[in-house]
């Protein structure tokens, strides 16, 4: 007696974490500890990118929390044959101004003209934990999972590092490190590319009833954690109060992360793209934009999915007709 399943344990842990988050963020609600899907609200009116600090507190906390999960690749990593390149960030572990396998969150800064004023906006970026994540759905090895509570988590022991998840993510979030993972045990020269890394919303922590590290570390309370419905409601209230804008509610078919901004996200996106274009290697991954209303990669395939379910029924009817017709012909 007294034993509970792993899932139930995690569910209870997350419920406790949500309750903790609710208490810390000053939200009082009886619904918080029910184990329902969780989400985050990132209030861009509060975030200042930890001005004056070399590295924002959320970034430092994330790096510290996940340091044991960071990849330790082999020496002399081979190229992705027949190509003469491979993706290695292990000598750039210090980078905190983009997403890498060693940096799962970072803060972008833009200055945007809005209503005749220049507004400075700092935007913490990481995985949005989408409602119907194409990254997890389209992984050819099912190495990614959308947890019932909301976080999208990569299993580094299964991931082959093909980086398809990054290609189908509207923000190109997952970051690849070569020279680590399962592919090394199969045919490292010919197949696979390493392991993909990204934010898992501190799934281990929230399963133990703790807050995500970034939420706990933010000195401004700019990142809030709680029941998803509640977070969205708060985001809408805040947006209404400041005559602002929400990002993440509709993008990619819906996410668990809601940004509230005093300036339109179209302007933020434009500035981010301009920054990216000026980078040393503009094509390098890990510096996402904020395309407003971006669709889900699966929208079109899901539109024809009904055809796949109807096809067997249609096949049965057509066969029945053909069989009876030919049998009649043979009797004549």
């Amino acid at each position: 007696m007294g034993e509970i399943s792993r899932r139930e344990f995690i569910k209870r842990g997350i419920a406790a974490g949500v309750a903790g988050g609710v208490a810390l963020s000053g939200i009082k609600t009886a619904e918080a500890a029910t184990g329902e899907p969780i989400g985050t609200l990132i209030d861009l009116t509060k975030c200042d990118g930890c001005k004056g600090q070399k590295v924002p507190a959320c970034v430092t906390a994330c790096r510290d929390e996940n340091k044991d999960k960071f990849p330790e690749p082999i020496e002399n990593i081979g190229d992705y044959w027949p190509q003469k390149k491979h993706e290695d960030w292990s000598d750039k572990r210090h980078l905190t101004n983009r997403l890498t396998p060693y940096n799962w969150t970072f803060v972008q800064n833009v200055k945007v003209q809005h209503n005749g004023k220049e507004v400075e906006v700092s935007i913490p970026r990481r995985c949005m934990h989408c409602d119907n994540p194409p990254c997890a759905n389209l992984c050819p090895f099912s190495a990614q999972e959308k947890k019932p509570e909301g976080p999208v988590v990569i299993d580094p022991n299964i991931c082959f590092g093909g980086a398809k998840c990054r290609s189908v993510c509207p923000w190109g979030i997952p970051a690849r490190q070569a020279g680590v993972g399962l592919y090394l045990k199969v045919a490292p020269k010919f197949a696979g590319g390493g392991v993909m890394y990204k934010c898992d919303l501190c799934y281990d922590r929230i399963s133990q009833g703790k807050l995500p590290a970034c939420v706990e570390a933010c000195p401004k309370g700019a990142i809030q954690f709680g029941p998803k419905k509640k977070m969205l409601k708060q985001a809408k209230e805040k947006a209404k109060a400041i005559n602002g804008y929400i990002y993440g509610e509709k993008e990619n078919g819906g996410t668990s992360t809601f940004y509230v901004s005093p300036v339109p996200f179209e302007k933020i996106h434009k500035h981010l793209m301009a920054q990216k274009a000026k980078q040393k290697n503009p094509k390098a991954p890990g510096f996402p934009g904020m395309p407003v209303g971006v669709g889900n990669f699966l929208d079109t395939p899901n539109g024809v999915a009904a055809g796949m379910l109807i096809a067997p029924v249609a096949g049965a009817f057509a066969a029945g007709y053909a069989a009876v017709k030919t049998m009649k012909g043979e009797k004549k």
């Binding site: 395939p301 024809v304 055809g307 796949m308 067997p312 029924v313 057509a318 066969a319 053909a322 069989a323």
Partner: peptide, 23 residues
């Protein structure tokens, strides 16, 4: 999309095959 459309054709043909020969 090619995978989905080809899968529709395969599903149709396989069920057609089974039903046709069973009848």
């Amino acid at each position: 999309m090619i995978h989905y459309i080809a899968a529709i054709a395969l599903s149709f043909a396989v069920v057609y095959h089974i039903v046709f020969h069973v009848i």
